[in-house]
Structure formats: C-alpha cells, structure tokens
Amino acid sequence: MPNQMYKRHDRSDIFIHWFNAACWILLLLTGVGLIQHSAIDPFGSGYPEALRAMVGGGGNLLTIHEGIGLLWILGFVFYLIVNFKGAKFFLSEVFPVSPERDVPWLFKKMALMTIGPKVLKDPTLPDQGYYNMGQKVFAQASVVGGIVIAVTGIIMWLSDRSLGAEAVGIVSWSIFLHFIGVGLVFAGLLVHIYMAAISPEERPGFMSMFTGVVPGDYAKHHHRLWWEKIKTENK
C-alpha cells in the first residue's frame, strides 16, 4: 500500500503561517531595535544604534515597525474573513488539553529530546491528536500572546495619534505587556523553529506547511488519534 497522503492544511492556513512568520521576524528585528535602555535592551545598545542608523533614525524605525505591525494585524483580519472555519477549527484543536494524555506527553517528550530515553521508565508517548501537546502549548502562547501584542501595539500606535494625557498609564503598561508578550512567545518560537525546521522527525510536518499534506505513516506515528479519525471518515 503506497503511503497515502492526508490533507492537513488549507492554502489560506499555509499563507497565514508564513505571512505570520515573516511579520514576526521583521517585527522582532525592528522591535528589538526600538528598545534602547541599558536595563532592558537584549543585546546592548549597539544593535538599536546600528539599526536606527541604517534606516535613518529611530523615528523611521518606529514607522517601519508600526507599518509591519499594522500589516500583520490586517493579514489576520483578511485570513479570518477568508477562512473563518479554519480559524475556528484551529482554536478548537489547540485549546482543549487532555490531562492524562497531553501532560505526560509533554514531559516525556522534553526528556526524550534533550537527555534521551534512558531517563524514562516507560519512554512510550501517549497518542496525540491533530496537534501534539508541544504544538498546542506554542499555539496557545501564540494566540494569547499575539492578541496581547496586537492590542498593546494598537494602543501604543494610537498613543500619540488620538489618546490624551489621561491614557499614559495604559500606554505605559502596554509597553510592558508588549515586551513581556513578545519575550514569552519568542522563547516558544525558538523551540518551534527547531522542532519544525531542524529536527528530522518533523520534516514531513515542515513540508506540509508548503504542500498542505502529510504522509499516512507520519500521521499515524505522530498524530495517531487524528489519523484514526480521518481514516474512519475517509472510509
């Protein structure tokens, strides 16, 4: 039996994933350049200085960052209009967590990936659904973090356009939340990038972000519950 391919992602899903990825990288690069404070900036003041000099000043960098940020938000609005069902499906798959299956999976997986199977009495991983728990954790963080980042970003963007002096507290806390949100999502993003793009075992998953489909044995091995479900549906 040839390795049957199963459809995993819609074209709009693929688009929004890579659109988001591109925006995030650019926003991260420009955003870090907007922080210039010895107690905060991640790589010292050299990076913001260099970046600002490159674009002709901090003001320009801010404009660029704001522009990309707005584009990113518009991109999501566009996606929601085009594929609202897909978004709903995504959220319904990402947020429910099974304590008996998902939680052990996460800890076992972390141990397996970093130290090896020897530390575990029983290295077999519980079966996973459409998303495994690692993907869920990152997706949850991305959704919540993304909303926080977008909302606080809009507040900051409005600050010197339409907000009055009474709003400075909200604006200032928005800066903090924006920073925290990005920091936490970025921490997850590193793992996500490794797992998806560098680690060989997820290679078919990575490819599916271009093709939209995964091979059956991959689905069976990695997302058994989903594989079983679609297999029965397909019959």
Partner: peptide, 18 residues
Amino acid sequence: AAGAVGGPTVLGGLRKAE
C-alpha cells in the same frame, strides 16, 4: 547625503534623516 541613505521609495513616508 543622509536623505539618500534612508530614502528609497518604500520609505517614502519616512523622515529624511534624524
């Protein structure tokens, strides 16, 4: 000169330089 650095068309809305 400073304007030339930061002045490609994409950055049309940006300030010349600081």
